[in-house]
Simulated assay, not measured.
Amino acid sequence: MNKKRKIEMNWLQKARESWSNTGNRRPVFAIEPKKGQRSVWDFPRPPIIEKVRKSVLVNYQGERIADSSDTLAVLETASPPTYYIPKLDIDMSLLVQIPGKTSMCEWKGNAIYLALKTMTERSVAWSYLNPFPEFKELKNHVAFYPQHLECYIDGERVKAQNSDFYAGWITEDLTGPFKGEKGTEHW
Score class of each variant (00 low, 15 high):
residue 29 F to L: 15
residue 40 V to D: 04
residue 139 K to I: 08
residue 116 L to I: 04
residue 152 Y to I: 00
residue 158 V to L: 06
residue 185 E to N: 11
residue 117 K to E: 08
residue 41 W to P: 01
residue 90 I to E: 00
residue 9 M to P: 02
residue 84 Y to P: 04
residue 147 Q to V: 02
residue 143 A to E: 04
residue 136 K to S: 15
residue 137 E to F: 06
residue 185 E to C: 08
residue 38 R to I: 07
residue 7 I to A: 14
residue 35 K to T: 11
residue 172 E to A: 09
residue 70 D to E: 11
residue 63 E to S: 11
residue 143 A to F: 02
residue 74 V to D: 01
residue 149 L to K: 01
residue 8 E to I: 07
residue 145 Y to N: 01
residue 13 Q to L: 14
residue 178 F to T: 00
residue 118 T to M: 07
residue 137 E to L: 14
residue 50 E to W: 09
residue 50 E to F: 09
residue 56 V to G: 00
residue 53 R to S: 14
residue 4 K to A: 14
residue 124 V to W: 01
residue 104 M to H: 13
residue 27 P to H: 10
residue 7 I to K: 13
residue 6 K to D: 12
residue 84 Y to T: 10
residue 166 Y to K: 08
residue 78 A to I: 09
residue 182 K to T: 10
residue 1 M to G: 15
residue 91 D to T: 12
residue 70 D to P: 02
residue 134 E to I: 06
residue 89 D to C: 04
residue 117 K to V: 07
residue 35 K to G: 05
residue 168 G to W: 03
residue 4 K to N: 11
residue 36 G to N: 12
residue 128 Y to K: 09
residue 150 E to T: 00
residue 74 V to F: 02
residue 44 P to W: 06
residue 13 Q to W: 09
residue 108 K to R: 13
residue 89 D to W: 03
residue 46 P to G: 06
residue 54 K to T: 10
residue 140 N to K: 12
residue 39 S to F: 08
